[in-house]
Design a protein around this nucleic acid. Structure first.
Lengths: 236, 236, 236, 236
DNA sequence: CATGAATGAGTGTTCATTCAT
DNA sequence: GATGAATGAACACTCATTCAT
């Protein structure tokens, strides 16, 4: 929990800092505003996000009270509303930050062996599983909240669509290079594989006998077979 | 704090939400009702379950109020507690009923063609998809509530374990008959396939371009490849 | 504070008692509802109105808290909302009841001497002054709230319009009987006289040297001169 | 609990709304400001008063927030308290300024025709009506606030007393010159006429068919008749 | 067994005011 | 003297649950 999220409520409400349209005499003021208090302000905001993250994990979204969050962040109750118009918005901020962390972790790592397609796939799946394990509780809460909140639902749908599109591109790319022979309906296949991955990651969290190796091996095998991925990278 | 433990807490402290000291009056009545259920009481109970089902679908679990349910069931507010000790119990009852419907629909149907393993598999998947679509909202709510309620969570885990075990048996059976060549880790494979199926069914619900044919074909293909199912049933 | 007001919120919200459209099996239920609980319900409602009346007088509208009202009515905080959707609505109910009391008090009394037009006018003014004194605080609060609440403002405008219309009719009637010679603009004259009466009644409340006799004499004199009322009733 | 006593109470208890122990910092600054008012501080103060004036008109006293005022004045939130100890003081300042404007407008104008008593009276009434129309909203707010704030109430009572006294003097003066024959109770008559004027001016504001001519003619007629003012100035 | 009025703990949100910078 | 983040008391309103009738 450390990256500053760009979805501050000031932007949403289309109100400039200071709450009015800058009208000209305010060049100085604006310049100051950009620096002034930013340090303190940002740290309070981040403290609230971090506290909210922890409280949500412990109590769930619906049972978490704003008062729990501010207590843990060690700020006054009212200060919460300086940064977030409601409980919803902190949750959104927490989710956004976790989303960034996940995206970074899932992205291809430089140490992936060139040419070892199968190995790369397994490593990618393993990274995915690992980061999902780390944030499993928050991800489960997103499901919980999405059922009752359209905005969160949209975020979630968008994230999934992005994931599916990425997998689809990967599959096409492998097919182009002659490394795989997927069937025609790449989109549906990608969707099914993404579902398998995310859902199994979710369930694994609840499994006391969870073994990362076993799961990533099995998932990668199904995946590879689904698109007829050649075990040996032919071009190497 | 889960819903259940929250309720338990209130009981421990003998401070009820209604602001009265619990003297067990409606609890006693409920106990009686459960035993000598008359014609009328049964129908009122069912009316409440049906109403709850609809209200939960429209408003979600957390936003649904007991008053909405009794209103729709055309029953007095107080009567609700003659049949259910709390809101979570009606939800449980709704889920149980839906669970039975799903189980019946998914069970092998007598009209499955003998010997056509692949076809049977696809038909089974199709049935699964269809019934999941019918009850998608309730199933999503189960996810939602499970995150905050341990009892529901257990029900859900049990249902999944049963499903996985069934798939595992199916795979073993096919392997025994020489119709498939699954790898050693049948359990993990079965888990991954169940995840794929349930998760994709869930997401498909939200897809405006959902096409049952396309999805069941794709899912069955991945599934078949995962266990190296022979396309033609050789032994028949 | 005793007359039941007809502006219950159930009617406003267009929701029938029970919160649903009666659909046929409910003949019994409806019959019952009309009798059942009405006694208790009405008394609680009236207790709340009476308590609100007193609290508003002591604290003013904006400083009065719902908790003060329920405390004085000796009912639970939540019960308030069984009868009124908000603080606004109790205020409306209080004002409506006071409005009825004032209307009754101002209406022509049977003991008015026949033919003594001037005396009748003075007696009417005196009754008006007296009842305004009794309810001066509530009437002042209506002014206070009307500035911030359109609904109350409308009620107030309507009440004034009615009063002006009544005075206008009275003046025309006197003119028809040859007892007065008002100028042509009866409407404006009536408005001015009503303003004089209500405003002076209001200010008198704040005057430690207030003397009902002196004020009613002076007001009646101005009034009589304004419409050239004959001192002696010519027709008697 | 009036606004003023509410504030006083907080100070007594040394528990301020801002949750800090009052140490007098901005109070001290305010004291300084009051003495060596620089060019800038004077203009900032005036900007706040102007902004407050507009905000109060738009939102009313109770709904107006200090933050709205500073926003419109383009001043930092904290700076408000450099110039005013509280919200009620800006209101007082606004009212005082409006009071001066009204007093100036109502004062006898040099172009009043000598000797035409009736005409002068009508012109004075007309000026009164016009300026009341201009400031009707603020004047209504004074009523609103006075009901909850003793200090404002006193200001208002004093203003009225002054007005009544002035009218009383005018009447006596006319009587002395033989231009009118008021009855003995000049004080009450003056009070009634002032009430009529101010109240009718207030109500006229809300009348879509308001016509200055008609109203000032009617008011002046009633007034003249009330003190038996001679229509023609006989002595000139 | 039905009814629905009564209960009251719980909580999100506002906003005047302070003060460190 | 200006700034705006921080403060926290205050309050309206909800709703699961009880129980007298």
């Amino acid at each position: 929990m450390s990256i500053k999220s760009g979805t501050g409520n000031a932007e949403e409400k289309r109100i400039t800092r200071g709450g009015h349209i800058a009208t000209g005499t305010s060049a100085e003021r604006r310049a100051k505003t950009a620096k002034n208090g930013t340090q303190r302000s940002a740290s309070t905001r981040q403290a609230l996000i971090d506290a909210a993250h922890d409280v949500f994990i412990e109590m769930g979204y619906f049972d978490a009270r704003v008062s729990d969050i501010v207590k843990r962040a060690d700020v006054a109750h009212g200060s919460f509303y300086t940064y977030f118009p409601s409980k919803r918005e902190v949750f959104q901020a927490v989710v956004d930050q976790v989303g960034v962390l996940i995206a970074n972790a899932v992205a291809t790592q430089p140490d992936d062996a060139r040419g070892d397609v199968y190995g790369n796939l397994e490593r990618a799946n393993r990274r995915y599983l690992r980061v999902h394990h780390q944030h499993s509780r928050i991800l489960a809460l997103v499901e919980q909240v999405a059922t009752a909140d359209d905005e969160i639902q949209k975020t979630r749908l968008a994230a999934r669509a992005k994931h599916v599109a990425r997998i689809e591109r990967t599959i096409s790319h492998l097919a182009d290079r002659g490394l795989a022979e997927p069937d025609d309906d790449t989109h549906t296949t990608a969707g099914a594989l993404v579902s398998m991955l995310s859902s199994f990651a979710h369930w694994s969290t609840l499994d006391p006998d969870y073994d990362e190796d076993r799961v990533s091996v099995a998932l990668t095998r199904i995946w590879a077979r689904a698109i007829k991925l050649r075990r040996q990278s032919a071009t190497t």
